[in-house]
């Protein structure tokens, strides 16, 4: 058991003595962001002064609906372009770098609304994740001899991962025939095919039943043990408390608090801004509903309305453009 948790102890130890202040420097940061600003018209959706993510840790990004978590995610992974700001990953500047190059640099994300490729088989979903495939260039694709062997290696690796994620029985089914929870597992497994150093999970537990949640949690913890860094957005406070080594709290686009789970949960600023009136036991229920409302708000660009007081959710008008359409465009 000790060996299994070695990475966890390391991360906990490294972060233990740090002051719980927004923007606090970490001993060994893998990701450093400075002054990242994203505005949608007159609304400032993201305005992060300084934030660092510790290498080898599981860091949670929490905050009320409309706090800018997903937008911040999109910026860091190249799916949206910031108005200002810069960030480095492993010492390499990634600001303004296209999404596919961010992934190749070792930072791979998943999506809030799972993106399983429905009409591809599960195993093909997995194979797609492998990078540097010779058969993915036009002329070599015409000559199966040049890529068959690499394809076999990729397939073997894919099958190992599918076994670990308990999807191996489904490998020849269309991904579209999987259940919601299985798609989440597939998406996470597929991201691992890229062999990333950092995995960005956007609400990995949204819409997953409690039994599968435990299994997903186990997989996330395993990522850390395998030497990866995990940054994830989540609403379920119990879960966040359970698995994260460090929590970053966003509110109104900025980082309002940071710290270890216990300290953050006790921080009055967090309770004021985020937990607020729902603190006693109601969080989970509200959290369940938040997911949907959050989808609309965060990605649609109307971010600050009703951000703090979730009880006013019902009065919030739907945003004019759906979020999905909004970030299909590659940043110019």
């Amino acid at each position: 058991m000790d060996a299994d948790r070695a990475a966890r102890s390391r991360a906990v130890e490294a972060l233990a003595g740090l002051p719980c202040e927004p923007g606090v420097p970490k001993p060994d940061p893998i990701l450093i962001a400075d002054n990242v600003v994203r505005r949608f018209g007159g609304l400032t959706a993201v305005d992060v002064k300084h934030v660092e993510v510790q290498r080898g840790s599981i860091t949670a990004l929490i905050g009320p609906n409309g706090a800018g978590k997903t937008t911040f995610f999109n910026l860091l992974t190249g799916f949206d372009a910031p108005d200002e700001g810069s960030w480095t990953f492993n010492g390499r500047s990634l600001s303004g770098v296209a999404a596919h190059k961010v992934a190749r640099a070792g930072m791979v994300r998943t999506f809030q609304l799972t993106k399983a490729l429905s009409k591809l088989k599960v195993i093909d979903n997995m194979r797609l994740g492998a990078t540097g495939q010779r058969g993915e260039t036009f002329w070599r694709a015409l000559l199966p001899g040049t890529w068959k062997q690499q394809e076999a290696e990729v397939t073997a690796r894919a099958e190992d991962l599918l076994t670990r994620f308990k999807l191996i029985a489904k490998k020849d089914d269309f991904a579209g025939s999987l259940s919601g929870g299985q798609r989440k597992l597939l998406e996470m497994a597929r991201a691992l095919m890229v062999q990333p150093e950092m995995v960005m999970l956007d609400e990995p537990m949204a819409g997953v039943n409690p039994a599968l949640t435990q299994s997903l949690l186990g997989h996330v913890k395993q990522l850390r043990e395998d030497g990866m860094t995990v940054l994830f957005v989540e609403h379920d406070m119990d879960m966040v408390h359970d698995i994260s080594d460090w929590i970053i709290v966003m509110g109104q686009g900025g980082v309002i608090a940071e710290g270890t789970p216990d300290k953050v949960m006790a921080d009055p600023r967090v309770i004021d801004a985020y937990l607020g009136a729902h603190h006693d036991g109601a969080v989970k229920t509200v959290g369940g509903e938040e997911v949907d409302a959050g989808d609309l708000e965060e990605s649609g660009g109307v971010t600050l309305i009703g951000a703090v007081d979730e009880l006013s959710q019902d009065d919030v008008p739907s945003p004019p453009v759906s979020g999905d359409d909004d970030f299909r465009k590659e940043p110019a």
């Binding site: 992934a103 990078t131 890529w147």
Partner: peptide
């Protein structure tokens, strides 16, 4: 030949969801 190769797999994946393909480094 192309559509049974990894190249064709990327095309079919783009048809399904190009953001997912982008997130995998293509």
């Amino acid at each position: 030949l192309l559509m049974s190769s990894p190249w064709g797999r990327v095309l079919k994946a783009i048809r399904e969801d190009e953001d997912a393909v982008r997130s995998l480094g293509k």
